[in-house]
Design a protein around this nucleic acid. Structure first.
Lengths: 340, 340
DNA sequence: AACCGATGGGACATAAAACGTCCTAGCAGC
DNA sequence: GCTGCTAGGACGTTTTATGTCCCATCGGTT
């Protein structure tokens, strides 16, 4: 069943919206017993005319009966509602979750795909697909898009296809090398995205673990500086979110820092910053590229991460308060709600 | 799965059409490998602009890739097509069948519901629902609608609901009493339909098994004559279709006539006439009401019958050649095709 | 190398559908 | 009989879908 809905969501995204709407109307009529058009419109927060369209449809298909005293569901409609119950639970589940999280963290948009990326590689693909779709929808012309590394971001890259606005865009790594394996480094992902979409890219080649003086001298380098300025002009940031300790380990952070992180209660990592439960920054990786203030003024910040194990981490980053769009999966979404 | 599609078919009939269309387009692109818009439009019998709308959609959702040399399905699209296969088989199965039967017997419209009315009472309900929907769609204002008896017709009556044009309509029995049990007699059904829709009705009370002189004297009766003339002015006929032998038995036809029927190869019964395999009339029940010539000039003749066991009978009546719309179920439809 | 045909994409007027808004007659319960 | 609902009609406006061209471009063929 879920697969059918997924297919339909992919082939006709509006479809499920209409289904939700019709169901809501029908269901509301049933609950109300007998109700009038205007009253119903008010209660459903629809305009009278739109509701009327639905009413006409439902009536013409014999799902409701209309009398002078108001509308009521017909026997056929009642049976339909009953049969729909499990289906609607499925359809609504995710969209309800989306709306809950969206309003809880004051986001612009939340997209949830079904499943758990921790256990299902299919869900991972879905996550990549959804991320790619969100990116495609938000990009306009000649945008600069900063991306981070990680397997989720790689998943997005693999699902991207070309489109007119994407073709003129620039893909850049959000920050310098952060010690991941090559195929998951931001540089690699930026270039792959550019390749997939027909867009352009610029890379930021800086070694990890810079000492203060090396850092300063690199910043003096005109070519490096020029690229960093370019990166900081980005309109869109797409980034993954990780568990703080796992990320620290993967990046081979030294023991002392790891201890500090642990003590500070670091839970999550995103674009090189570590966040505690309350969303406060407790540590920063010393590398070039986008800084916190850049994130804050970036027009569209898109976070993509899934899997039950990442739920808490995602909640932390959301609490940080500068995300605009979140793409996640069902398992993580349920965790996020728990940690609200 | 089938249930989900049934629900959706009921709640949003257009969307399955959209699904079919999008699938067809996508599938065709895959089969063609790389193809241009105009060529594709020609091959799919769509206008260029409409196809373009679909193309834009498919592209914006990353299901196809567009290059200067033409369009091709993306990896994502390919996966979607693969996943859709069983789904589409289900969705298309019926509509394909519909079209096959429609063109085979030169009908105006064929509606097929899923299942087998012989075995599933749910399919029987669906059949009634579909019949009611077809009737509702075809009725205009103040129509005279002649109906026959039978359990299928009773099913339609039970699913009818009121609507503006139906309210002004007249329901009449197509022919006089044909020896069924009361709740399945045409008279009963006509009055129930009127009750359900808010329409009006007139009944035709004539005894069964009329002798020739009684027949003649009844015809002289002004009130009877008046009603019969009224019935014959009908614009719409809705009738069931039965197996000849079963109907003969149910109506307690005498042994001699039964033997005659058998010898003449009677297969099907509809509105009091018996048809053989080729669709020729081999017997006629002696009662008042609509005659064959009336059926022939009636604007809309709607036949409703389902169940595998009735397939052959339905095919016979269709071959008779004066049906306009057929409402049946999947099992019967498959039989009908076999007997073409 | 030049040409031809098919390609995607842009543009625009028009038809059609969706929509917001207001009005009216009628029925139900008080 | 009055009040507050009800459904349904009407109409102008806005948005969307559609038919119909045109054009620059790319690929393959001559």
């Amino acid at each position: 069943m879920r697969d059918i809905l997924e297919i339909q969501r992919q082939l006709m995204p509006d479809f499920l919206e209409v289904m939700k709407k019709r169901y809501t109307v029908l269901h509301h009529i049933m609950v109300s017993g007998s109700i009038g058009r205007r009253t119903l419109a008010l209660s459903l927060d629809m305009t009278e005319r739109v509701l009327r369209g639905e009413i006409d449809f439902l009536k013409s298909h014999g799902l409701i009966e209309i009398e002078a005293s108001g509308m009521s569901v017909s026997e056929v409609g009642r049976q339909l509602l009953e049969r729909m119950e499990p289906l609607i639970k499925e359809v609504f589940g995710l969209t309800d979750l989306e709306e809950q999280i969206r309003s809880a963290f004051n986001l612009k948009q939340v997209v949830i795909v079904a499943g758990d990326a921790d256990h299902s590689s299919f869900t991972k693909r879905e996550l990549g697909l959804a991320g790619a779709a969100v990116l495609r929808k938000n990009v306009t012309n000649d945008d600069i898009i900063a991306v981070t590394g990680g397997s989720t971001m790689a998943g997005i890259a693999s699902q991207l296809v070309t489109s007119a606005p994407l073709k003129g865009s620039w893909f850049v790594p959000a920050r310098g090398g952060l010690g991941e394996s090559v195929e998951m480094q931001a540089n690699t992902i930026a270039s792959e995205m550019a390749k997939k979409t027909g867009g352009q890219y610029r890379l930021l080649h800086v070694p990890d673990d810079l000492g203060e003086e090396a850092y300063q001298s690199l910043m003096q380098e005109a070519s490096i500086k020029e690229i960093i300025d370019f990166v900081r002009k980005c309109r869109i940031v797409v980034h993954g979110i990780g568990d703080a300790m796992i990320m620290a380990k993967r990046r081979k952070v030294d023991l002392e820092t790891t201890a500090n992180l642990q003590q500070a209660g670091a839970l999550a990592e995103a674009f090189g910053y570590y966040f505690d439960r309350s969303g406060a920054v407790v540590h920063k990786m010393p590398t070039l590229g986008l800084q916190l203030e850049d994130i804050q003024r970036t027009e569209i910040v898109i976070g993509v991460a899934g899997g039950k194990s990442k739920g808490e981490a995602i909640a932390s980053v959301l609490r940080f308060g500068h995300e605009d769009i979140l793409v996640t999966d069902e398992a993580a979404a349920n965790e996020i709600i728990k940690h609200f």
